[in-house]
Each structure stands twice: as C-alpha cells, then as structure tokens.
C-alpha cells in the first residue's frame, strides 16, 4: 500500500528532527546550557510567530525578499541567455567557456567589498552579489541541458519546416527545461543564503541585519528568529519552485 508506506516513511523521517528538538529542549531543561545562550525551542518558535506579526519584522522580510528576487531574476535571465547562446554558437562557446571556468570557482563573496565601493551600501551591491552567486549554477545547467538536446528532436522539428532561429525557442529551450529548472532550484537556495549573509556583513535592514543586531546585544532568542525565518523562506520558495517545476515538466519522464 503506497499511502501507508509513505506515512510510515514520513514518521521515520521526522524522528531525527524531533530528536534534535528534544535534545535542544533537554539541554535547556537539564541546565546543561543556560537559557541566555540557548533559549528553549518553545520560546524561539513563539517569538518567531510573535515577530512575524510585527510591522518592523515584516519590513525586514520585505527588504530581504526584494533583494533576493531581483538578484535571482537577473541571474535567471543572464544565465539562461548565456547558457543557450554558448550551446548554440561555437564562437560564443569559445569565449564563454574559459571565462566561466575562471569565474565559477571564484568565491563571489570576496567581490562584495568592491561592490560596496562601486554600488554603495544599498540594494544595488547586495542584488549584484546575489545575482553573481546564483548565476553560475543556472548558466552551467542551462548550457548542459541545451547542448545535450537529442539531435533527432531538432531534426524532427526541422523536417516539419521549423526555421533555424525558431528551433531555439521551439525545441532547444523546452527540451532543456528540466535542466534549466534544476539550475534555478540550486540558484534560488544560494540566493537565499547569499542575501542573508550580505545583510549580515553590512546592512541597515533585512533579516541578516536583524541577526547581527541581536548578536551585538547578546539576545540569543532574537538571533535564532531571523535564522529560522530565512531557512523557512528557503524551504517555502524551494517548494513553490518544485510545484512550478512539476507543472512545467508534466510531459517529461521522472520529473
């Protein structure tokens, strides 16, 4: 029975999560860790709920989300275009390939000080950093997907009278979609992480800034809240993208 099997698995899988929370609670209850350093889980989650309802915290979330989406959107547009172009044209490929090989393993966060100098401390520098970090997984998987499109799909479309320039949009892009969306998924989680870190390093608002503010005043509870908030955000966005993915790829096998 599929459903019973699944629910058994779910309970099984939830065990370690419950264990972690129990251990956390235990550390506090048995006085191993003082509440100042490790607030009990109940306190953290009720604080999170309470914060979610306040206007100031919502503003922090909005600031983070704006940067996150702007950076991610730029990364998707640039990454997919360059990826497809590099797969389509040997000349572009020859130029893009070595540049990507050099830039992909470069720790983008090291560029952050330069971005601060060039674009200021506002949205611009953080959006650029997010875009730079999310760009490469999207670009590489688009390239991979576009260059491994089954040759005979292309031939079939050409024989049916599709002009060469339309092949790109009618065959290559849809056929590369599973790979593109995998790249987007990785890029999205990276975006979440990077925007938060950038806000922690220097910012005046956003969830990352909220953590740093709490750390300066040793408010352990308030340090946990933004961290959990950004992780939840990551999970939710990941889930949403998963839903979009299964809709877009409904025709593909094992999507």
């Amino acid at each position: 029975m599929m459903p019973r099997y699944l629910s058994a698995n779910v309970i099984f899988g939830l065990t370690p999560i419950v264990l972690v929370i129990a251990l956390w609670q235990g550390l506090v209850s048995f006085g191993v860790a003082p509440t100042v350093l490790l607030p009990p889980p109940g306190l953290v989650f009720s604080r999170l709920l309470q914060q979610l309802l306040t206007w100031t915290f919502q503003e922090e979330i909005v600031a983070t989300l704006i940067r996150l989406f702007a950076g991610f959107a730029i990364a998707v547009i640039v990454g997919v275009s360059i990826g497809v172009a590099a797969a389509a044209s040997p000349v572009i490929n020859a130029v893009v390939r070595p540049i990507v090989r050099v830039l992909a393993p470069l720790p983008k966060v090291a560029l952050y000080p330069a971005l601060l100098l060039l674009l200021g401390f506002g949205h611009g520098s953080k959006i650029t950093l997010v875009a730079a970090d999310a760009l490469f997984p999207i670009l590489l998987s688009t390239y991979y997907g576009a260059s491994t499109v089954e040759q005979k799909l292309v031939w079939s479309a050409m024989a049916a009278g599709t002009p060469r320039y339309e092949i790109l949009f009618k065959v290559v892009l849809p056929a590369a979609m599973p790979s593109i969306l995998t790249g987007c998924r990785i890029g999205l989680v990276i975006s979440c992480i990077v925007v938060f870190l950038a806000e922690m390093i220097t910012s005046t608002d956003g969830l990352g800034h909220a953590l740093v503010t709490a750390a300066r005043t040793f408010q352990a509870v308030d340090m946990f809240v933004p961290l959990i908030a950004i992780s939840l955000l990551g999970l939710i966005l990941n889930g949403l993208l998963g839903a979009v993915r299964s809709y877009l790829l409904r025709g593909f096998p094992d999507a």
Binding site: K152, S156, A159, A175
Partner: peptide
C-alpha cells in the same frame, strides 16, 4: 537541408516530451 517534403521517423521516436 531538411524540408517538409521528406519526413523522418526515427528509431528513438524523438517525440517532443513537453507536448
């Protein structure tokens, strides 16, 4: 080049999976 006067049918089917 390819043209609609000559229609291929491949062993691999080559159907568009998104359609």
């Amino acid at each position: 080049g390819p043209g609609p006067d000559r229609g291929p049918v491949f062993q691999e089917f080559a159907l568009f999976p998104w359609k």
